[in-house]
Structures are given as structure tokens and as C-alpha cells.
Nucleic acid binder design. Structure first.
Length: 333
DNA sequence: ATCCAGGTCA
DNA sequence: TGACCCGGAT
């Protein structure tokens, strides 16, 4: 891990009559944050690597134990969902459908049932669509470019980047809310704001990312892990942080910790999301041989029948349920 | 009981 | 920009 690997040479490459040291000082003055970040990143990377090796959670898709498809499944399941909740679902899922072609051939009802209570069941549908695309267009082999990955159903910027980094070992900045929070705190000394990642945050992520591909993978996974277990949003465990000595946020006295910075959250109680969840859960957990829920039992699920019917209609539009002629509901075949 | 975390898509 | 789900923390 030398300076060149982190882009120092680029900063020094500005034409100048002054010597390198003068140029470095001038560069610091011009782009204080970036220059400081570039200088600190190698030290931080070293500490994070040691911390990762001693503290990384033993998730089943880590340490080379999963195929690229398995890594993709873990990332899709982990969107908007805590890792600890994902583990048992991922294990059962991968046992049943070890590759894209296996998932492509499953019934929708089975897929929704196995998705269980992970939440946002449209992700399950998109994952199966993704499996069908991979199976048919790419002969069951996950494509290896960001552009091809991000074009797949349910795969956005984060998941495409995560697969490129964690499954294929390529050098690419992975940007999720954990990484944004950690990088913003450590290098900018302030909280990351809600909403989409800003241009500044993206530039920072690319600036501090190690040049060496395998070092960049370690960086991505260790920064993300730190954000998940130490540098958490509300009560960061700075006394257990391996890079507390390098953190501008801690140095500044944690300014604005606890201020509203996440996207405004929608209430859950009484929302369509809750009602949709109730309906789908009833269908997922039908007893024994029963394959559909009679209209009468559907109506007992939620008092407000106007809202219930609109949720049933939206579930139908999403392809998550089928409405039979007699008004009973079932999971799609 | 209420608050909160977390990517993708339209 | 808002819709989408669930469970853990407080």
C-alpha cells in the first residue's frame, strides 16, 4: 500500500515550477478535504483490514463460500433488510434454488412463500425475473460488467457495484447508506444526509478507494461492516472503533449526531404496506391443502374494505396474487 | 407504543 | 419524490 496506489500521484501531476513538497502543501490548501482523505486512507485501510480479519461476521456467503449468483441473492435479500434476518432465508433459498436456472423454473407461489417475512415481496418477483434473464440471456452465468448487471430486474447501482466488488473482485466504489455514513463521518466530519448520494459523496468514495483491486474489495467490505456494527447511525460505538484516531467526526465532537438526517420515514401502522403484508401473509400460511382464501375470510383480514380492496388490486397488479372469479385469492401459479 | 433502518423503481 | 415491508430497539 504505497501512496501511488491511492492517487497521490494524480494530485502531484499538476504542472508547477515549485517542488513536490510545495505543490503538496498548495494542493492541501486548494482541496483540503480530498487531499487529507487521500493521505489518511492508506492508514485507515490498514487498520480496517486488521479489524475485519478479527471481527467480520461469519455470514454464509462470505469468504469465498458462495457462487456469484449466491452473492447476488444475498445482496438482493439484504436490500432494506438486516443481515441477521437474511441468513436463514438465504440458506434455505440457496439449498432449494442453487443457481439462476433453478430459480427460473420455480412457481411464483413457491417463490413468494419462500420469501417469507423478509419484506418487500416484489423483490422476490424481480429476483426470479433476474434469474430468468440470467438463465436465458447469459446461459446461467452471471454477467461480469456493471452495465450488464444494472440492466437486470431488481439490480440497481448498489447491488451491481456490490456484486462487481464482492463476487468478481473488481475495483468499484460500493455506495450504500452504511458506507456513506462512515465515509462522511471519517473524512468530512459530518453526517451524511438522507436521499440520494450526492456528487460529493460519490467523489469521496472514489477518491479514497484503494487502487489495487483486492485492496478495494477489502475496503468496501470492511467500511460497510464498520458501518453496520460499530459506526451505527444513532449510537456509534467510538470506543470500539479501530479508526477512532483518524475520524474527523469524533475529533469534532460528533456534531449533529441524532439530528434528523435520514429520509422522512413513512408510518407503517394502517398503511397500504401493512395491509398488503397481512393479505400476503394469509396466503403464504394457508393450512395444508388449501390453495386459496375465500372472499369471506379475505374480508375478515382488514376492517376498512375500501382500503383492503385497493390493496388487493395493487397486489394483483404487482403479480403477487391472483383474484379468482368468486372473489377468493391465491398466490400465482 | 413509537421510532427507525434500508435499495429499487415509476 | 413517494411507494414499498418487517422486526428490533427504546
Amino acid at each position: 500500500m504505497n501512496d501511488t496506489a491511492y492517487g497521490i500521484s494524480r494530485l502531484r501531476a499538476v504542472p508547477s515550477a515549485r517542488n513536490d513538497e510545495e505543490e503538496r502543501v498548495a494542493a492541501c490548501a486548494r482541496t483540503d478535504g480530498e487531499s487529507r482523505a487521500v493521505a489518511a486512507a492508506p492508514r485507515i485501510a490498514k487498520r480496517l483490514t486488521a479489524w475485519w480479519e478479527a471481527n467480520a461476521r461469519d455470514l454464509p456467503w462470505r469468504f469465498g463460500r458462495a457462487t456469484p449468483w449466491g452473492v447476488l441473492v444475498s445482496e438482493v435479500m439484504s436490500q432494506q433488510t438486516q443481515m441477521s434476518r437474511v441468513v436463514p432465508y438465504w440458506q434455505a433459498w440457496m439449498e432449494l434454488w442453487p443457481d439462476a436456472t433453478a430459480l427460473a423454473g420455480a412457481s411464483t407461489a413457491e417463490v413468494i412463500t419462500m420469501w417469507g417475512r423478509l419484506g418487500y415481496p416484489r423483490r422476490a418477483l424481480r429476483l426470479q425475473e433476474c434469474a430468468q434473464a440470467v438463465s436465458e440471456r447469459y446461459a446461467d452465468e452471471l454477467p461480469r460488467t456493471y452495465e450488464q448487471l444494472v440492466a437486470l430486474p431488481g439490480i440497481g447501482d448498489y447491488t451491481a457495484s456490490a456484486v462487481m466488488s464482492f463476487a468478481f473482485g473488481r475495483r468499484i466504489a460500493v455506495i450504500d447508506t452504511n458506507i456513506r455514513r462512515v465515509l462522511s463521518r471519517v473524512f468530512l466530519g459530518k453526517e451524511s444526509m438522507g436521499g440520494a448520494a450526492s456528487a460529493t459523496e460519490r467523489e469521496l468514495a472514489n477518491t479514497v478507494l484503494p487502487q489495487d483491486p483486492s485492496a478495494s474489495v477489502m475496503w468496501n467490505q470492511s467500511v460497510m461492516e464498520l458501518g453496520a456494527v460499530v459506526c451505527v447511525a444513532k449510537k456509534p460505538l467510538c470506543e470500539r472503533c479501530p479508526i477512532a484516531g483518524e475520524c474527523l467526526f469524533l475529533e469534532s465532537g460528533l456534531p449533529g449526531l441524532g439530528e434528523k438526517r435520514t429520509r422522512p420515514r413513512q408510518r407503517f401502522q394502517g398503511t397500504d404496506r401493512q395491509v398488503r403484508g397481512i393479505v400476503l401473509n394469509a396466503l403464504r400460511t394457508l393450512p395444508g391443502a388449501q390453495t386459496s382464501l375465500p372472499r369471506e375470510q379475505v374480508e375478515s383480514l382488514w376492517k376498512d374494505h375500501v382500503q383492503l380492496d385497493s390493496c388487493i388490486a395493487s397486489l394483483d397488479e404487482d403479480g403477487l396474487i391472483e383474484i379468482l372469479a368468486d372473489g377468493s385469492l391465491r398466490l400465482p401459479r
